[in-house]
Design a protein around this nucleic acid. Structure first.
Lengths: 341, 341
DNA sequence: AATAGCGTTGTAAGCGTTTGCAATTCTTGT
DNA sequence: ACAAGAATTGCAAACGCTTACAACGCTATT
C-alpha cells in the first residue's frame, strides 16, 4: 500500500535524518554516499513508497528523459513498425515516447514539433515526407536534436536513416523490365516530396534508361497511400495500358491487385506488381506481394540509437545512414527459378 | 528567427515592464488583464519568441496536460486503431500522449503504469487483457484516473469502454450454426484472461446451448494473436474435424483461411470463418473476412473522452460503456441473400 | 469630496528536484 | 595524538512557472 498523495524527497530526508542532497544522490545512483546511509535511505524510500517526481526532476536538471516522435499515422503499418523500433530502443535507454500523429499535414507537423519543444523533450524523431522549408526551419530551430526516420529532406542535410530509395526502385523496375515489360508504371506520392522526385523517380528513370526504354509521363501516377487510392489508380493503369507497376505503398498495391483481378487480369501473368514496404499485408494475401524489402524496425531502432548519441553530444561518424534493402520475390511477379503460387 | 536558448516568462515581463503574474495571466488566457497591456505582452512574446516551458508549468500547476497510453503493441492493427481514436480526442482537448508498448507482459505493464505516474501524467488509458491483481492494484494505486479501452477486468469495476463481447461472440456463433454446422470451433486467447473466460467463452456457449449443441472442449483453442498462430491452429482445426471457426483476431483468421485453402478446403463452402476485429485485413483479402464489427476508433475516442471528464472531476453517468457492435457478413461465411464472392 | 467596490497588477511563496560549493567527518601516515 | 587529504554530507540557489493574497487606481454613488 502506497500513500495516496505521494511522498517527496523531503519526507524521505526527514525520515532518515539526512539532507535532500543525500537522498537525491542515492536516488540517482551517485557514488559518493556511504554504504550504510545508502541502505537507510533506500529503506525509507521503500517504506514511504517514494517515487521521484519526474517533472521536478526535469525542471531542475533540464532533462526530461522523454523524446518526441512525430509520424503521419500510427495506423499505417509502415510507420507503426518504425515506431516500434523507435520505442524499443528508447526504452532500452530509459526514454519515454511522446507520440504525435500528423496525417502528414505540414501545419500539424510544425505545431507538433513546437509543442514537443515546449514540453522540453530531449530529442525528436521525425517521420513524414512533406518536408517543406517551414518545417525544416522549425526543426532546425528547436534546440533538441532531431533525426529523420524513413524520410528524406530536400537538401539531405538532416540526420536521417533510410534505405537507398534510388537503388531500391531501380532494382524493382529492372526486375520487371527483365520480364519483358515495356510499359511499366510508377506509382508514387506527389512530386513535391523530395523522396519521390529526387529518389524514386530517379531510380525508375535510371532503370528505364539502362534498358533503352523511353520515359513516358503517362505511366507516372501519384496516389495517396491507402487501399481506395489503389483501386482508383488501377483503373487509370488499365487505360494507360500498363502491364506492370512499381508502387510505393502496400495498400495501394493491394488495391491495384484486387481491381485487376476483378477485371479479368491474372496476376502475375497479365500484370505484375512490385510494392515497397514489405508489411504484413504482403504475406497474408494470395498471391503474396513481391516487394522491396526494408528493415523497417531497424530503421526506427537505428534512428533512435543515433538520437541517443546526439542527445549525449557524442561524435557521430555518419549522420546520413542507409540501411540495406532487398527484393522479396513473391507472387505478384514472375520469378526466375520459382514456381508461381 | 527565435533566440536559441529560449526566453523565459521573466524576460517577457521585463521587456514590457510588468510582473511575471501578468504575463502568466495573458499566456493562460486569464480574463483579468487590461486589453492594452495584453497587447503589449503579446507583442513582446512574439518578438522574443517566447514559448512557455511546459515542465515548469507542470511543476507549478500540478498538471502536465499529458496522458499515458499503455498498449500491447502499436504494430497490431486493432490496438493502433484504438490508439488513433485516443490520440485524436486527446489532441482535441490539448493533451499529449505518452505511449508505451508492453507486449501484454504484466511486468512491463506494471512498470509502465508506475513510470507514467512518476511522470505525473494527468490520466492513463490502459489496453491489454492480462489484467492480474498486481496490475489492477497498481492501477488503483496511481492517483491519476485510468480508463480501460478494449479491455476488461475480472471484476468489471474499472472505468472502461468496450463492446458487449458476450453478445458479439454469441451472434457470430449463431450465424454459423444457422448454416448447419455442428462442429464450430472457438479460437480465443488464454482462459486466464477475463475477456476470454467471462465473455467470449460465455457467448459461445450460450449460442451452442440455444441451438441444442453440446459444448466440446476439443473445439476450444487458445492462440497468440498473429498470423503464424493462425497457421498452427488451422492444422489442429483440421484434426478436430471442425467445419467452422469463430476467432478473436484477424491475423489468426487469415492464417486459418490460407492454411485451409492450401489444404484443399474451399472457403466458405467447406469451412466458414468469422473473425472479430474488423481491421483493414478483412477487406483486402479474397475472400474478404466476415467479422464482428467493432467501432475501434470510437472505443479509443470515447475512452479518451471519458478520461477527460475524470480528469476534470466531472460526474460520469456510466463508467462501464458498451458501444454497439455488428456482424459484417463478407466472404468467409455463406450469407443469406448474398452472392458468394 | 469621501467612500465603497471593481477591475488590474504586483508580491512572494511555493512546486520537488538537482547541483556547485562549503562544511564536516573519517582515515591515514607519522 | 595531530595534520592533511579523502570521503561524506549539508546548504542553498536555481530551474520557470502558477496562484493566493495584497495593493493599487479608477469609477460610480451619495
Amino acid at each position: 500500500m502506497q500513500k495516496k498523495s505521494s511522498a517527496t524527497i523531503y519526507d524521505v530526508a526527514n525520515r532518515v535524518g539526512v539532507s535532500l542532497a543525500t537522498v537525491s544522490r542515492v536516488v540517482n545512483g551517485n557514488s559518493n554516499v556511504r554504504e550504510s546511509t545508502k541502505r537507510k535511505v533506500l529503506d525509507a524510500i521503500e517504506e514511504l513508497g517514494y517515487h521521484p517526481n519526474a517533472v521536478a526532476r526535469g525542471l531542475a536538471s533540464k532533462k526530461t528523459t522523454t523524446i518526441g516522435v512525430v509520424m503521419p499515422d500510427v495506423t499505417d503499418m509502415y510507420y507503426s513498425e518504425l515506431a516500434r523500433g523507435i520505442d524499443d530502443v528508447a526504452n532500452m535507454y530509459h526514454y519515454d515516447v511522446l507520440l504525435t500523429n500528423t496525417d502528414e499535414d505540414p501545419v500539424r507537423e510544425t505545431m507538433a514539433v513546437n509543442n514537443l519543444a515546449s514540453k522540453q523533450v530531449d530529442g525528436i524523431i521525425f517521420m513524414g515526407n512533406e518536408l517543406d522549408n517551414e518545417i525544416i526551419n522549425t526543426i532546425i530551430g528547436v534546440d533538441a536534436p532531431v533525426v529523420l526516420a524513413g524520410s528524406v529532406d530536400e537538401a539531405g542535410k538532416l540526420p536521417s536513416v533510410n534505405i537507398n530509395y534510388i537503388d531500391a526502385v531501380k532494382e524493382a523496375t529492372e526486375a520487371i523490365i527483365k520480364n519483358g515489360h515495356t510499359r511499366v508504371a510508377l506509382v508514387t506520392g506527389p512530386m513535391t516530396h523530395a523522396i519521390n522526385r529526387l529518389h524514386r523517380l530517379v531510380g525508375y528513370k535510371a532503370a528505364l534508361e539502362e534498358a533503352g526504354l523511353e520515359f513516358d509521363e503517362s505511366l507516372l501516377f501519384s496516389a495517396h497511400q491507402d487501399y481506395a487510392s489503389g483501386l482508383q489508380i488501377a483503373e487509370k493503369l488499365f487505360l494507360a495500358e500498363a502491364s506492370a507497376a512499381v508502387t510505393y505503398d502496400d495498400e495501394i498495391a493491394l488495391g491495384i491487385m484486387n481491381y485487376m483481378r476483378e477485371h479479368g487480369k491474372r496476376i502475375p501473368e497479365d500484370f505484375e506488381i512490385i510494392t515497397a514496404n514489405d508489411t504484413k499485408f504482403t504475406i497474408i494475401t494470395r498471391p503474396q506481394l513481391t516487394s522491396i524489402g526494408q528493415p523497417k524496425y531497424d530503421i526506427g531502432a537505428v534512428a533512435m540509437r543515433m538520437l541517443t548519441k546526439l542527445m549525449n553530444n557524442e561524435v557521430i561518424e555518419e549522420t546520413q545512414v542507409q540501411l540495406p534493402h532487398s527484393l522479396e520475390r513473391r507472387g505478384t511477379t514472375i520469378n526466375p527459378n520459382h514456381v508461381i503460387q
